[in-house]
Design a protein around this nucleic acid. Structure first.
Lengths: 208, 208, 208, 208
DNA sequence: GATGAATGAGCCTTCATTCAT
DNA sequence: GATGAATGAAGGCTCATTCAT
């Protein structure tokens, strides 16, 4: 129906860049909160204080926004992880910093992470494959890191590397569900805790 | 329960029970595959070889099916985990069996688990609270198990129990995304691997 | 959906007559309260503490109930009005008693009257024509009564008889909207008031 | 207002106003003819040569149209009646002009009146209360007019004013059921006839 | 660049009625 | 007589997208 409430956002003249960012921002927030399907293009425009027309000026389809939000996150994360590979070689240190990188991306991109895990399957065809390829690279980076640790005699060789890697990734990914900025532990704290646990185990070491 | 009939249709006369199960089965499969919102009641009915009318004879709303599917899984899992508490007291053994229980439920209820993690937020009001309460109980069971291990001097006391518990749960939960029945490792194998890793650590033990 | 609440009504064995009356009674009440279209067969059955199956044992269709309810009222009213014609001949007395008859039927059949005025157009084809024929007879009985009064020199001859008759009928019919049993005036009181007003006028008579 | 365009469709370019009026017009006609519940939004759109989508662009719900149609009529009528109060003070003249005002509104808004009397109960909550409040004001205007006539010694004091007022209103309201524009009597003629009847009575005055 | 009117397809749900039991 | 499972048609409403302005 006509005459929806409007929360004006644009304050001075046309600023296409701001319009684009505003739309992206409200889409991210709404996708995170209610999911991709439960969010309407009208809702996105409303939340940005803009109109549907403006939306279709900047994005071809609703799915297009989803793709952009995914790219933002996945590219950022992949870059961070590659950086770790270049900087740290010792298996234990490398693993610790990989975990830190994941946790850091959860901290800075928590909404994107949430949307990624909940909505990525709604990307269609090519879009989906492109995102999946990047995510697969992340997985294999972790697996290779474990593999190299085993090869170097630093990590135990009785644990399937792929399953170990998936376990660590799962532990890290899961934090998007409960991590809260400003809590008693920073993302880096959590990362170190997980690194300690995974590397040394929970059990009190027998000093005998 | 595994292997719900997915395509029985009516074969001879009225069999309301079969109809109900068929609808539940196709809903589970479709929710898992395409998500709750992308699945239509028409689609559910079609997949079960029935009509929309039949669907609404057995369920009040589409959400109702979602709730039933959640209950099935959450109740089953909670029962399994409580059983572990009653059977195993030693902290390390208890933790190992808790992990096994979670992995077992992923194995037998993989579709339900998937639907649970992806769609539970679409349960509304009371339904959501009821499911969340049960899930919260699971979380706190894990946390208490870790706490008791620390108290008993079996687990290290320098790692925040809540974060440890959430990490283990995340690692286990994540398996719903990649675990495949019939692969080289059973769910119990994966559980033991994770228990080993979490209890003893990845690092080769210094025998010195 | 299955498992609706049930308010049991039948107390001792099968009593088809009671079943029929119970269905008719709850239909009347629901039609009056919510209208014909807003009332479902399921609702009628529920309100009578019976099942839809029972309903279709006693009535061919939902419209069938509507027809029966209309017949009940229209037949009763027509009989009352004919009785007046046979009993009272003087135009003024006849008119007064015709008004009393209408008001009496509002008093005893208020729900039927309401349903009649609100829902009669939903009777289809033959049903509608049959009811309309009876109602038309009522109209023409009133008109003839006025006509005869004029012919007898008792009523003024400067007022269109048909319009006068429709006015009186409207005044009487309207009472179904506001008349409440147990109020300060009985239906007969209201009838006499209307007869007085219509026969003598509101103006204070010039005694000069 | 009489003669709303009922079938204009879009002729050249966008004319939202015409679209709105066309939808309102076909809704009015269909509600009058088949009733609110028996009229579908699809039917309204079809009759206006538009689509359901267009309907929901202009109205929030089907009930919304009903409310607008009610407002149109009730507001118009209330204004007319208040105007009478301001213009005529003598009780008999005032009553005559009140009756004329009602009949005039039946003449110009017959479809709205019909819809009002048949469908107003399907307005929900606030909508219903708002309309009812305005209608109640009309009722009490009539009652007060009678009261003042009695107080001024112009009207008989032996007839309950409220019941008299409701009787006159009923007589007037009823015309929506039979009045036909272009017949032998205009609405004003009918109004005067009813005023004559109500003020002077049907009986031939005793000239003695 | 931006608006908002209009479309068209699809969705969840209701319901009168039929039919196997 | 009575039940309740199942149907099929329709209804109100939403929404991504297009297009005239």
């Amino acid at each position: 129906m006509v005459n929806r409430e409007v929360r004006p956002v644009r304050t001075r003249g046309y600023e296409p860049e701001r319009t684009y960012e505003a739309l992206l921002g409200s889409a991210l927030e709404l996708f995170r909160e209610k999911g991709y399907h439960a969010t309407s293009v009208q809702g996105i425009a409303d939340a940005a204080g803009l109109t549907k027309g403006a939306f279709y000026h900047h994005f071809a389809t609703k799915e297009d926004v989803l793709r952009v939000l995914h790219d933002e996150y996945v590219d950022h994360q992949l870059a961070a992880v590659r950086e770790v590979l270049a900087t740290h070689q010792h298996p234990a240190e490398q693993l610790r910093h990989l975990i830190r990188a994941i946790l850091a991306s959860v901290e800075t991109h928590q909404a994107n992470v949430t949307v990624f895990f909940q909505e990525r399957r709604f990307l269609s065809g090519e879009q989906f494959r492109a995102i999946k390829a990047k995510r697969d690279e992340l997985d294999s980076i972790f697996q290779s890191a474990v593999d190299r640790g085993v090869g170097a005699g630093v990590f135990r060789d009785d644990l399937n590397a792929r399953v170990v890697a998936l376990g660590i990734l799962g532990m890290c990914a899961w934090t998007y569900q409960w991590y809260q900025q400003g809590g008693s532990m920073t993302a880096a704290d959590v990362a170190d805790l997980y690194a300690d646990m995974v590397l040394d185990g929970l059990l009190v070491q027998d000093a005998s």
